[in-house]
Design a protein around this nucleic acid. Sequence first.
DNA 1: CCAAGCTGATTGACGTGTCAATTATGCTCG
DNA 2: CGAGCATAATTGACACGTCAATCAGCTTGG
Lengths: 154, 154
Amino acid sequence: MTTRQRRFPTREELRIWRDYTETGEAVRAAMSARLQQASGLSPGDYAVLLALSEATGNRMRSSELAATIGWERSRLSHHLGRMEKRGLIRREECLTDNRGAEVVLAPPGLELFQGANRPHLRDIREIFVDALTPEQIVAAGEISAALRAHLAKE
Amino acid sequence: MTTRQRRFPTREELRIWRDYTETGEAVRAAMSARLQQASGLSPGDYAVLLALSEATGNRMRSSELAATIGWERSRLSHHLGRMEKRGLIRREECLTDNRGAEVVLAPPGLELFQGANRPHLRDIREIFVDALTPEQIVAAGEISAALRAHLAKE
DNA sequence: CCAAGCTGATTGACGTGTCAATTATGCTCG
DNA sequence: CGAGCATAATTGACACGTCAATCAGCTTGG
């Protein structure tokens, strides 16, 4: 019976770990560059605009928006500040809670988002879907799920 | 014969794509937090210190270091500035090329790195290796390789 | 009621990353 | 030789993220 509770990863496991993280980096960088190039939007901009475009009235409470895209409040606040300066969104006072703010999709933001949407989906296909076999795509989903489940357990 | 040249990813492919990127994020964040907590080092710090610790004489030309860890020069330059302020490394003039700089591992940097090393490897096992079956680990390596190869082709 | 505490959101400080410009030195060819 | 180009590295400006602190308005229990 071999030791099943190894203390450290093997050389091969380490190589794959590095591969996994570095590839993630590279893929993200490539997607980000294409999005930026095609539309002038960052991945963060896209996430915000996507959520707003799907909200009823194209508006959302700030904290609701943060929950939807899974960001910390302060991160969102900083990002909204930058987006507001560029005219992509507006912030309005909330009528039902004077502390609150509503984030509203501004026309230039909607337009940029709509322009970005199809190219972005195409990029996902070109960079991710087309690179893998159908079996690998399924496996990628399973691996991601396993990693997340394991993380959540800790 | 079905259309093989789909324009856009399917709903399922899109779900897996989001899973893939978000999981990568989460894994990176978890590793980063543990490293920081255990040693006060960022992943960037660790990469720099690892390369230096493996270099002969614990010193390297700045551009060689950048190539080793796959960073842009300017990124490295900024990062070395911050690490130098903390006393983790020193920068010395290069004798053979007056333009060049040598990056030298300083004792506090070596000590922090050595303290971080074993816990870091253990974290890789706990977060990555232990979360996956051996087959999934192999698959993760193949998927990463396929994505990178495809990226390189573009 | 109203003080104490909770919540929504912003802010400031700082680490990190990219891009373009800059500085200074090395090198090569007419 | 020396003008022009290549190379090593840094810098400045700005986008992005996190953390801790702050501020204002809501809420609630004595």
